[in-house]
């Protein structure tokens, strides 16, 4: 079997093509958003929102409404609850996040267990790349297009919001709206990503690509290119590996992303651990002996 065969073989199946398309689109959207999330320090928030959307998605399924609406409602509910618990009790933010998102996630699991359905709703939890329907793919494409369009059009505002929200506010930008907008985009992105890797692993797609790109460049504009490209390649590699090794595709994608992060963490030209150590040694060598 040649390399080309290895690459073309899975594409004989329509479900594999859909899986690839879904995974790549989800990887790109998550990666672009992750550039802001890691810089604002919203990784934990990404974790929380991506889990907390579960009951919203299940309710949307029950009511026959679009998943996106349920996800946004519960995404905001989670953030509101976290803020309320933190500001009206002595509980610190990380604990408030932990309490709220696990409770909402658990509520989602309970709802799933009592909801009769033809499709296995557990797929929402662990992802079901190989079972993505044409309709699912259309929904992923529409939501992704909306999220990416908003991020691209307002990218400079979001970046300023991440870097210096006080200045943004002082010159009349609506920082509340920018924050709420990012949260809404986060909830929408969670819907896209849960099709690919499931609720549990969404947070990996929302953090790892931005963190990886951040170790490779000092320019935000370049992060916005590096993160989605790397993430898409990881998604493709993950799907092929899972096909040939017969492993779970969602999990494999995230393992590949984690492996790439590890490589970058070790070998990045400037921010990598090894480069830093060499620089430190050279620095010490150059210093006069006391």
């Amino acid at each position: 079997m040649t390399l080309l065969d290895l690459l073309l073989d899975p594409l004989r199946y329509e479900f594999m093509v859909r899986a690839l398309a879904t995974a790549v689109v989800a990887a790109v959207v998550c990666a672009v958003l992750s550039c802001w999330l890691v810089l604002i320090g919203w990784s934990l928030m990404g974790d929380a929102v991506s889990h907390a959307v579960l009951p919203g998605v299940v309710l949307a399924y029950i009511l026959g409404a679009p998943f996106a609406i349920g996800a946004i409602v519960f995404g905001f509910l989670a953030v509101a609850l976290i803020g309320t618990v933190r500001s009206t009790s002595r509980i610190k933010e990380d604990a408030a996040i932990g309490i709220v998102f696990t409770t909402l996630f658990a509520l989602g699991l309970v709802l799933i267990s009592v909801t009769p359905s033809q499709t296995d709703l557990n797929h929402i939890v662990f992802g079901n790349l190989l079972g993505v329907s044409a309709g699912d793919l259309v929904q992923v494409l529409i939501i992704s297009a909306v999220v990416l369009a908003v991020l691209v059009v307002k990218r400079r505002d979001f970046t300023l919001y991440a870097f210096d929200p006080t200045h943004a506010f002082a010159i009349g930008l609506n920082t509340r709206l920018l924050g709420a907008g990012l949260l809404a985009l986060l909830a929408l992105t969670a819907v896209v990503a849960l099709q690919a890797v499931g609720v549990v692993l969404v947070v990996a797609m929302l953090i790892i690509p931005g963190a990886t790109a951040y170790l490779l460049t000092d320019r935000f504009g370049r992060m916005l290119v590096i993160a989605p490209v790397a993430s898409a390649l990881c998604a493709i590699a993950g799907i092929y590996l899972s096909y040939h090794l017969d492993t779970a595709p969602g999990g494999t994608i995230v393992v590949v992303q984690g492996a790439l992060f590890t490589l970058v963490y070790l070998f990045a030209p400037r921010e990598g651990v090894l480069a830093k150590r060499t620089a430190a040694r050279r620095h010490r060598g150059a210093a006069p002996v006391a």
Partner: peptide, 20 residues
């Protein structure tokens, strides 16, 4: 933060700029 000096200064102009 991955932002250049020039881009920081440019954010001073945002109020006078269009949506993008």
């Amino acid at each position: 933060f991955p932002i250049s000096v020039r881009d920081v200064v440019m954010t001073g102009r945002y109020a006078a700029m269009g949506t993008m």
